[in-house]
Nucleic acid binder design. Structure first.
Lengths: 386, 386
DNA sequence: AAAACTTTGTTCGGGTTGAGAACAAAGTGA
DNA sequence: TCACTTTGTTCTCAACCCGAACAAAGTTTT
């Protein structure tokens, strides 16, 4: 979209964006410091700041300490300047939450639903849940995370055939009357990590979502990697072995080794008819069986991550999902596996971390998608709806 | 560099760049068509074209056919508007060539030299070879391709320790008195492919260099992927098996399976003391032994490429090196291996091709590095040296 | 063949944007 | 209290792109 502008408006948009992003990154900065930071004249910074005031996303906060002259007035984000709504549309659940500019989650709701097979019901439910969360605050838009590649705001029909006929973005935009963006769940998890988690300011990192399916969100040079047609980051079907039949029909996919269904199966093999869920089993029991299962999974994942590191040279890898989140040994086993690999590799095992965002990471990322767009083109803030 | 500009000069630079790139992509276009193509006013296009004339990189060619009015004047690149020199600094050879804007190689020279262990001699040789190729045509600069990651114009000391103390870019810039850029060989091969080969206009593709070492140049969204510190694309040490000791110390690296040293070893196993070189053997003999070796190599490579496709979703994969170039069966075996994998994968086996650029691909890419920079900021053309 | 029409490219006045100088505001320090 | 420093604003100017008017160079119609 930016590519089609070539006149002075592009300049203004770019400069507004840079100033706004810097105000966020610094958590408060004066006009004079902005001017020095960019090498831009103070008059221009003032003018840009005025426009950001009018857009309602920046406010003048306290005076900072004087350094021997007039004290600087600190510019800050205006946390309640706008609201965004994020939807995590999983294969069997829907989570919706509303968030403000400061990342504070104002409300949230969740339902269990077989979205994979009931697209119309899922759509209707999303509309109801979103409308229930709308307040009188100006709404920038709604972001939707889906568990498959996204092409032009539509779900890839290869993975979810029942959604084939549904143009998710335009349909919801019509019904809700606000801007709607759609993104892949792993990509949006990565976005959330970059805005609110442990990857703030990191331009090159990988977010690995390991749950029923396995996927990765790849950031390169500060941008999400989509690939030719939006399929980049399909970590789950990377071949890491010759064993293990995957639901995709191939053998040796990573998902067939560390996906939750496979781990559950392995537990069932040992304890027939157990009432333990996978997690409580892994957390509470510490038998050699659980150790074996965890070590095997860490071993398998380490192969895939080693490949990732070689190909993409990320600065960091962030793991998200129930296993890394609730089984602390897992990350340790993984680090051990990784460090026995790749002597040349520039990444250190400390660069592997567990996500700090919790279960709502993907929904947060969906909401953040709108902030990402609006921070790149702050004029979008002028088009908010009540 | 572009990031530090934020005033109207940025606009001008961007618009000059876009017009120049479009003139190249279309191989000749009128001002009126440019105006329609960008949605930009004819007056602005005229002004931009005038400046490109003054920079000496664009010329007015023939009149095109009239469509009922004044016939359009076609703008074209001026092939001899400038000269660039590319250096392929391999571990045991140096290739230098000079090229014009149209991609015509005007002269070339090559020497065998143990560059890996004799950095000072290599540097001196490069200077002599470059100066020998300089003519009275204006020279935009010199690009250097090196067989290791590049950090700030320096070679990564982890791979070539003897080059540790040498600041390649600044040293050569001082001695030669022209702009010097340094890049990784696989990345520059990819660049050459995008400018002159089968990936013209393709934004997402992978260039695989398979020779003694194995590396990849990754293009994403029209940009070379460097990663956090320039190590992206290290395909050679991707683990694809549990067998095969690699020179890096790990087991199962791709390079240990398809690197030329390994293939040579396997041939030696069968025919002790053979006088065949690897290539003539593979090309001329068609025994079951050669078939086995080729099939194994294709099989190993297909695992790595399958991983690549899953992670990066490229539009195309281009193979470069003696085996794919001179052994036509190899690409067929590889395609077969690939198509038995990844039923979900959006890439088709036809998307795998052999490079059409020949042995000088890397040196061509090194020269092209300067064109890439200058086409992004055409004002650089004003700073050419004789 | 001349007039009307179409399309291309240039010229010139106008709006937007950022730069820079001058100035006002608001502190520190002798 | 008065000089000094730093911040932020105002105002004029230059660069850039736009759009309208115009000139150039064809084709089509009469």
């Amino acid at each position: 979209m930016t590519d089609s502008i070539y006149d002075t408006r592009l300049l203004r948009q770019r400069n507004l964006s840079r100033v706004l992003k810097t105000i966020r990154a610094t958590e408060g900065i004066s006009r004079a410091d902005l001017s020095r930071h960019f090498g831009m004249s103070r008059s221009s910074v003032s003018s840009l700041a005025d426009q950001l005031f009018e857009l309602g996303v920046v406010q003048e906060a306290h005076l900072a300490a004087s350094s021997g002259g007039r004290p600087p007035r600190v510019l800050q984000l205006k946390p309640n300047g706008c609201m965004v709504i994020g939807v995590d549309l999983g294969s069997s659940h829907i989570t919706v939450l509303s968030m403000n500019l400061g990342g504070n989650i104002e409300s949230m709701s969740e339902v269990q639903l077989d979205c994979q097979n009931q697209p119309q019901l899922a759509l209707q439910t999303i509309v109801e849940m979103v409308n229930a969360l709308r307040t009188k605050n100006p709404l920038l838009g709604v972001g939707i995370a889906v568990p498959c590649p996204v092409v032009d705001g539509n779900l890839s029909e290869q993975i979810l055939p029942k959604w084939k006929e549904i143009h998710l973005q335009s349909t919801l935009e019509g019904v809700l009357g606000v801007r709607v963006f759609v993104g892949n769940d792993a990509n949006l998890g990565a976005l959330a990590e970059r805005w609110w988690g442990s990857c703030k300011g990191v331009d090159d990192f990988v977010f690995v979502k390991m749950a029923t399916g396995v996927g990765a969100g790849l950031f390169h040079n500060g941008n999400i990697m989509l690939g030719d047609i939006g399929y980049a980051g399909e970590l789950g079907h990377v071949p890491i072995s010759t064993e293990g039949l995957c639901r995709c029909g191939m053998k040796g996919c990573l998902e067939a080794h560390i996906g939750l269904p496979h781990l559950n199966e392995r537990i069932q093999e040992y304890i027939e008819g157990t009432e333990y869920t996978l997690l409580t089993w892994l957390v509470e029991e510490s038998s050699s069986t659980t150790q074996d299962i965890l070590r095997d999974a860490a071993q398998s994942l380490s192969i895939a991550l080693s490949i990732l590191v070689n190909l993409l040279n990320p600065h960091k890898i962030v793991l998200w999902g129930p296993i890394p989140q609730y089984v602390p040994q897992f990350i340790e086993l993984l680090r051990t596996s990784m460090s026995s690999r790749d002597p040349w590799s520039p990444i250190q095992s400390e660069c592997i971390e567990v996500s700090s965002l919790g279960e709502q990471a993907v929904a947060i990322g969906a909401a953040t998608l709108l902030l990402e767009e609006a921070f790149s083109n702050p004029l979008l803030f002028a088009e908010m709806q009540i």
